[in-house]
Design a binder for these strands. Structure first.
Length: 452
RNA sequence: GCGGGCGUAGCUCAACUGGUUAGAGCGCUGCCCUGUCACGGCAGAGGUUGAGGGUUCAAGUCCCUUCGCUCGCGCCA
């Protein structure tokens, strides 16, 4: 018999079907047994009664086991209809169960509360949870919508290398790996230089980059390996052209979540972000933000070169309450705080045509206009203590007519975490890597040494 | 890397100022149950309180060392 998907069962009342399913719950009643089955399309109740030989197999069908189940789809008797669950008006009267792979007893209750540590160290099991499935369904929509919107806006997808010959940007902590003939290579901290090169090729490009950072950061928003949704575009007037595209993008992603993930958002008990009308989110210069903070809190940070996390949280609350937006751009960070390729604002010397996008208290994006004049670019590199000779490969693009351009990098896990209302980016990462967590560190030997 | 908090059963947590045999819920094992839907009922097993040292008549509780986790900061997406 052909397999029927659970979502189709409501159209099959009265007929015999075969489903492939996972046991969500089994409720043993002695001479009868109930199951909640799930597949990728939904859930349905199964019931065994009056069939001792089936009941015997049913008792072996532990939660999370995978099965082929044959049975007849019945309308439930009036009194047994459960309107709180999907397919609560039908049930499968089971005639045969084939256990494909029996699950051991779970080490914990999937519906219960978890410490982050337990949640992450048991990913193959805990990812099955409804909450985790909701988070990663949402993440899948974000990446899908990102690709759709960028293509629609004329961006071409490309792949940047992850193994690089040097840390071109300087500053960031890099992972060093052994390469051929005793040479060193590094894991890319960003696709930055490659996406700029690609502007010279395709004018508008985007990529889902994996970025590696060896920073010894232990926070709720850092990972050693993360996904950067990168974009870069040519022929811009200034950084506001980029902010405009990014605003449209976030609006598109939010709408996509609204139409595709209603159930997931409800399960996580979160709302879609507040987005005001207008082609660019509320935005202000760093110095304006600092004045605002001084004005409202009395704390004077007006000569600081950057916002502290506390300030970012304050600004987001302000933007949400006063400006009706869960997103807010901060522009014009000082030259000292930005990489060498960042474009200095000719009307505001010392400050750059760069921006961060803050979302619900966290920085999700850094972007800006880049220097396109090769001589200025070299000077800026030198000013940052970098040797332009090391960038000869990259500089070829600039010697050959790259247009004025800019772009952004967006942390997918941070974005997912904020859409889902989870506290730690690691919860929005399937298999997070941090200073102390990588799969091989979770081997039995290591546990024996450390956890007893 | 620095600072705070935490580490008790498989999981989530209790155990007042140090004081009998360290408890609960869920899970697990056994038995009962033909309308459950986180099914229910009865019985039971399960702990070197992360590890090592110290103070004390007495340590889960206080002190030191160490390992792990977590939150905050620096830095960042």
């Amino acid at each position: 018999m052909e397999r029927t998907l659970i979502k189709e069962l409501k159209n099959k009342v009265g007929s015999e079907v075969l489903i492939g399913a996972i046991v969500d719950v089994r409720r043993d009643q002695g001479k009868m047994a109930f199951f909640d089955f799930r597949d990728r399309t939904g859930v349905v109740q199964g019931v065994v009664f009056g069939k001792p030989e089936v009941l015997e197999i049913a008792k072996e069908a532990s939660p999370e086991s995978s099965l082929f189940v044959t049975g007849k789809v019945n309308q439930r008797p009036e009194k047994m209809i459960n309107d709180k669950v999907q397919n609560g008006d039908i049930e499968l009267e089971i005639t045969e169960i084939q256990i494909l792979n029996k699950a051991e007893p779970l080490p914990f209750d999937l519906d219960g509360e978890f410490n982050l540590d337990t949640l992450l160290d048991n990913r193959p099991i805990t990812l099955k949870r409804k909450e985790e499935r909701a988070i990663f369904n949402i993440q899948a929509t974000i990446t899908r919508a990102y690709g759709e919107y960028m293509r629609q806006e004329g961006f071409t997808e490309f792949q940047a290398p992850k193994l690089v010959g040097g840390d071109a940007e300087g500053g960031a902590e890099v992972f060093k790996v052994g390469y051929f003939y005793d040479k060193d290579a590094f894991l890319a901290t960003s696709p930055q230089l490659y996406k700029q090169i690609m502007v010279g090729v395709f004018e508008r490009v985007f990529t889902f980059a994996t970025a590696f950072r060896a920073e010894k950061s232990s926070t709720t928003r850092h990972l050693s390996e993360y996904t950067s949704l990168d974009a870069e575009m040519g022929f811009i007037k200034d950084h506001t052209d980029i902010m405009r595209v990014e605003t449209g993008l976030m609006r598109y992603i939010s709408n996509a979540l609204g139409s595709s993930n209603e159930r997931d958002l409800a399960l996580l008990n979160v709302e879609l972000p507040k987005i005001p009308d207008g082609d660019i989110f509320p935005h202000m210069k760093l110095r304006e933000v600092q004045s605002l903070i001084k004005e409202h809190t009395g704390v004077d940070k007006t000569s600081e070169p950057d916002l502290e996390p506390e300030d970012e949280r304050w600004l987001c609350e302000y933007a949400s309450k006063e400006l009706g937006s869960d997103f807010v751009f901060v522009t014009h960070y000082p030259v000292s705080k930005r990489p060498f390729y960042t474009y200095e604002d000719e009307n505001d010397p010392g400050f750059t045509k760069s921006f961060d996008l803050l979302f619900r208290g966290v920085e999700i994006t850094t972007g800006g206009q880049r220097v396109h004049n090769v001589e200025i670019l070299k000077q800026k590199a030198v000013a940052k203590g970098l040797n332009p000779d090391n960038f000869a490969f990259y500089l070829q693009a600039f010697n050959y007519g790259i247009p004025p351009h800019g772009g952004w990098g967006m942390g997918l896990e941070r974005l997912t975490a904020k859409f889902c209302g989870v506290q730690n980016v690691k919860e929005a990462t399937l298999f997070p890597r941090d200073m102390n967590r990588i799969d091989t560190l979770l081997s039995k030997d290591d546990e024996d040494n450390n956890k007893q």
